[in-house]
């Protein structure tokens, strides 16, 4: 019975896939209409960055990016609402600890590079934030229960930093008559760099905190048996 249902669903979904493949084929065969690409590259010089993807993310469609930071924050708030973080992992041995001592600063350094290079080449706040998050994950795996994050009050400010700076820059521009997230001529580059720097820190901290998996400040005591599935209450 169960198998029959799976088979039936498979046949239906195969038909759906065939329909969608046909639709995609027909769509791609169309004469490419006035896509956004020409327009996006024609006005690239005014955006303050020379990497077109960064221009889309932080200038043309900056509003999307602001909300995306809010989505990330909402997920973390949801995780925090579920209880304190589980206990961390066993302390790593000397060889791994020495490796971690190298990798974590390198990841942070690489993150800084990614942030800067995003203005003119592939890179940017999300890639940089992901590297910072990776550094946090490595720290936690190596037995650092807080994953290198500060205490709860500071952590709370850090996770809202990205969306906060973004929204305040937008609101400030609105209040001074330019329109929400409409950068004044010539200042786009520095405002984007400011937003991206704040976003990098916030993304890195948020990803790490999400990996830690619970409210900071309690329940992160060591236990020698490795990962524990029970939360200290």
């Amino acid at each position: 019975m169960k198998r029959d249902l799976a088979l039936l669903l498979g046949i239906l979904l195969a038909l759906l896939a065939a329909l969608l493949l046909w639709a995609l084929h027909a769509t791609l065969a169309l004469e490419p209409g006035p896509r956004l690409a020409e327009l996006a590259s024609a006005r690239l010089e005014q955006t303050g960055v020379s990497n077109p993807v960064t221009a889309v993310l932080l200038n043309y469609r900056a509003y999307d990016t602001l909300l995306e930071l809010a989505v990330l924050l909402a997920a973390l708030l949801g995780i925090w609402s579920l209880g304190p973080a589980p206990a961390g992992y066993q302390r790593s041995g000397p060889a791994l600890a020495a490796l971690v001592d190298w990798i974590v600063p390198l990841a942070i350094l690489a993150g800084g590079y990614m942030l800067w290079v995003g203005g003119h080449a592939p890179g940017g706040a999300f890639q940089a934030g992901a590297l910072l998050g990776a550094a946090g994950v490595i720290l936690r795996l190596s037995g650092e229960p807080s994953a290198g994050l500060p205490g709860e009050p500071a952590q709370r400010w850090l996770v809202v930093l990205g969306a906060g700076v973004f929204a305040l820059v937008g609101g400030g521009l609105l209040a001074s008559g330019f329109g929400f997230l409409t950068y004044p001529p010539g200042q786009a580059k520095w405002l984007i760099l400011l937003i991206e720097s704040a976003a990098t820190v916030a993304i890195g901290v948020t990803l790490t905190a999400a990996y830690v998996g619970g409210r900071p400040g309690s329940g992160t005591a060591h236990n020698g048996t490795g990962q524990s599935r029970t939360v200290q209450r």
Binding site: A40, Y60, R61, F180, L181
Partner: peptide
């Protein structure tokens, strides 16, 4: 109606 970012549609939102 307004378009954010000062780019107008279709570039802006």
């Amino acid at each position: 109606g307004t378009v954010l970012g000062g780019w107008g549609v279709p570039l802006g939102i």
